[in-house]
Design a protein around this nucleic acid. Sequence first.
DNA 1: AAATATAATCGTAATATTGCAATATTAAAT
DNA 2: ATTTAATATTGCAATATTACGATTATATTT
Lengths: 107, 107
Amino acid sequence: MGISKTHIFSPRHNELAKAAKVMAHPARVAILEYISKQEGCICTDLVEEIGLAQPTISQHLNEIKKVGLLEGTFEGKNLCYCINREKWVELQQFFNSFFSVIHQNCC
Amino acid sequence: MGISKTHIFSPRHNELAKAAKVMAHPARVAILEYISKQEGCICTDLVEEIGLAQPTISQHLNEIKKVGLLEGTFEGKNLCYCINREKWVELQQFFNSFFSVIHQNCC
DNA sequence: AAATATAATCGTAATATTGCAATATTAAAT
DNA sequence: ATTTAATATTGCAATATTACGATTATATTT
């Protein structure tokens, strides 16, 4: 994205943007939804479920991991991913409180 | 972003991603918050408020416009931007309902 | 009509993202 | 120890984003 001057923005704005960025790709939205709908942990499936190549899925998973939305075992064969519910709820509230700030009535 | 295979994802996932993308940059988060906190419409200010060059702000505003989050007069001198509240609430609910889907308890 | 103020557009450089093939790594099974 | 199945990493090509200077368009003042 070019230089992206993150330093001129508040930590809150940067955090919100970072959280939003995770959901800013349909593959990641689909992955998140799929995992969150599973009863237990998921093991594979994702590649055929989503329809992207394995390295691509792996990369997207990594992006999701980086914001702390995934939990579980990540190495070796048969990984076990699941949603970090605390973080999930935190994000939900984060977005919600952002959208709740509207003091404006014009136009 | 490379080829970005939007066609393999559901419309809902694509829409959510598109909405999230708008908030996926701190400048746009800051802009949205600033406008939403104004009593009436804003006229300028944004450039010095945010701290980016005028063309850059203009571009960001355009991104926000494209998802329908802005309303008002866009041409000429002294434009008048304000939040499209309907769309705003729609997005809030969109995100919220996405985050509400969690059927999972493991790990 | 000319000057002024404000915002949009264009062009372009720098950087980020997406996606995949090839390869490496890991852990379990044989 | 080998093989096997599953995921991670690397490297790279294609495309998108971010940012801004220069310019252009538009409307208001003078």
